[in-house]
């Protein structure tokens, strides 16, 4: 089983609820082909560089997922028929790229949590320091 990155452009007139609904449908599709969603990024509504199916804007979704190797063309065919999607691109990721993709998300989350952690670290640090002190005494 390989990992893939699917970049999907949804119709621009979707609100958050409709996007979530479409996302649920897409995850179902992926699971139908023996895959699993690893990470979902919502890039949000962006202006397209050129018109796609007469749309000037689009809602970008970025999904990291796994899929059975032979089922990828079938998945792409399903994307094509899935009404909310106006354009898509499926990229195969090698191990390094996957690690990077997973890592970048974690780094962002860590940066966000950083403020909360700063408050927590002094408490967490003190027991360790005590433990070290005990060891040195022994």
């Amino acid at each position: 089983m390989r990992s893939y990155q699917s970049v999907l452009i949804l119709k621009p007139d979707f609100d958050e609820a409709q996007v979530d609904e479409a996302l649920a449908g897409i995850t179902e599709l992926i699971q139908g082909y023996g895959g699993a969603c690893l990470k979902v990024d919502k890039w949000g509504k962006k202006r397209l560089a050129y018109r796609v199916k007469k749309n000037r804007f689009g809602y970008y979704l970025n999904i990291y997922h796994t899929c059975e190797n032979e089922q990828v063309p079938a998945l792409e065919a399903k994307y094509k028929l899935f009404a909310p999607i106006i354009k898509f691109m499926v990229l195969r990721l090698d191990d390094k790229e996957l690690e990077r993709a997973m890592g970048s998300g974690e780094a962002e989350e860590k940066a966000e949590e950083g403020e909360n952690k700063e408050a927590a670290t002094p408490e967490a640090a003190t027991p360790k320091a005590e433990a070290v002190a005990e060891k040195t005494e022994d």
Binding site: I9, L48, A49, Y50, G58, M89, L91
Partner: peptide, 14 residues
């Protein structure tokens, strides 16, 4: 080339 494919960059100016 990937960015062009997914409409982030233009193939040619409209």
């Amino acid at each position: 080339k990937r960015a062009r494919n997914i409409a982030l960059l233009p193939f040619a100016v409209e």
